[in-house]
Design a protein around this nucleic acid. Sequence first.
DNA 1: GCGTAGTGTTTCTGAAACCGAAGCACCAGC
DNA 2: GCTGGTGCTTCGGTTTCAGAAACACTACGC
Lengths: 119, 119
Amino acid sequence: MPPTPRPGRPARGSATGRPVMAALDLFGRRWTLRILWELRDRPLGFRALREQCDGMSSSVLRQRLLELIEARLVERGDDEGYGLTALGREACGELLGLHAWAERWAAELEGPGPAGRGA
Amino acid sequence: MPPTPRPGRPARGSATGRPVMAALDLFGRRWTLRILWELRDRPLGFRALREQCDGMSSSVLRQRLLELIEARLVERGDDEGYGLTALGREACGELLGLHAWAERWAAELEGPGPAGRGA
DNA sequence: GCGTAGTGTTTCTGAAACCGAAGCACCAGC
DNA sequence: GCTGGTGCTTCGGTTTCAGAAACACTACGC
């Protein structure tokens, strides 16, 4: 299991510990973005979260949660399960921007098409 | 090689084709965010881009570039190499938000610490 | 007490993704 | 013809992920 990326420590695929590199490494791992997204407006238990993520592998979910907890984006409540920290909510705010972008993206791909949209 | 995520088509790990899911899948692949980041303010050739990404594997770089081209985030100029499309620049704008967040993240982890920062 | 149902978590095996170095084909300058 | 620069491909080994099964624990009804 690779180390959890954190600012100040060299990220995977980066000689520097620049915060943005650590973030790019952390968010570039499979399911990480999705987990943050699914927790965006309420905490979820392990199994519920797994359901939301279309039944992703429990071993990987566990791993990602540990990483996110170590990175202080996620924390465990006593009853509610896993939820975002203040830092996690801020990051999720940025994902909202991505969500808006994705809608424009969809519109763009659907519409004009020099490079064709069908495979 | 898995299919390139695109809105309207079920993304990996998602039953739906919702644009945001496709985006989360696309951006959740290793190096994808980093590539966009490195292209943020000028086009780069294959080898130069590879250098910027700390010597990432050329086979994976090729794969990611094809995906990004198919997703219309990246295009090839005749001379300058690979550069962002208008859509790609928009997405990159969202990454700038992530960059700003990463700085706050670094400050937060450096400062107060209930969960400890040292391993 | 005893079984049932619900957690979160762990373990395991095979598949998929990634790494990394080497080498290819091509072109420009000399 | 050689050198040095591209972009790109191939291939064996390593890492990561997938998916199902089972574990430990708790709360409940009985």
